[in-house]
Amino acid sequence: MATPELSEEQRAAALVKATAVRSARRVFKEELARGEMTLQEAIDRAKADEALAGIRVRDLLQCLPGIGPKRAETAMEDIGISQARRIRGLGTHQIDALVEREHR
């Protein structure tokens, strides 16, 4: 499938939208890293915001203090979450398991 041709106005609008999404995700991840919200609050907020819902679960977990790539990968494997899963694709049981694991 070929990429559709966009007008200059459409390209400019897409660029503005992409920049806003990246900025919102950066601020969200920084707040989580500083401990300003719990994992449950972060997931709830992301589920309500389409820009944030596209963040990979692996990246979300790595923003938590004390969680690096290996711990995030292990947690996701233990729960049965694909490494490619995004927040919007998490089920209620997966969310519950992640939050429970955070409290250990």
Rank of each mutant, 00 (worst) to 15 (best):
M1D: 06
A2I: 15
A2N: 13
T3W: 01
E5C: 04
L6V: 00
E8I: 07
Q10V: 13
A12T: 08
A13L: 14
A13Q: 11
A13E: 12
A14P: 07
A14W: 00
L15G: 15
L15K: 14
L15Q: 14
T19A: 12
A20T: 10
V21M: 08
V21W: 02
R22I: 00
S23A: 15
S23L: 12
A24K: 13
R25W: 00
R25D: 07
V27Y: 07
V27E: 14
F28M: 03
F28N: 01
K29V: 06
K29M: 13
E30H: 11
G35S: 14
G35K: 15
E36F: 11
L39K: 01
L39I: 01
A42T: 06
A42W: 08
D44A: 14
D44L: 12
R45W: 05
A46F: 03
A46S: 03
K47N: 08
A48W: 06
D49W: 03
D49E: 12
A51I: 01
A53S: 08
R56G: 07
V57Q: 03
V57C: 03
V57L: 14
R58W: 15
R58S: 15
R58N: 10
R58A: 11
L61D: 01
C63H: 01
I67G: 05
G68V: 05
G68N: 11
G68E: 10
K70F: 10
R71A: 08
A72Y: 11
E73T: 12
M76H: 07
E77P: 04
I81N: 00
Q83L: 11
A84P: 02
R85W: 06
R85H: 07
R85I: 05
R85L: 06
I87Q: 01
G89Y: 07
G89T: 08
G91P: 11
G91F: 08
Q94E: 14
I95V: 13
I95R: 04
D96R: 15
L98S: 04
L98V: 04
V99A: 05
V99M: 08
V99F: 11
E100A: 15
R101S: 14
E102W: 15
H103Q: 12
H103Y: 10
R104E: 12
R104I: 13
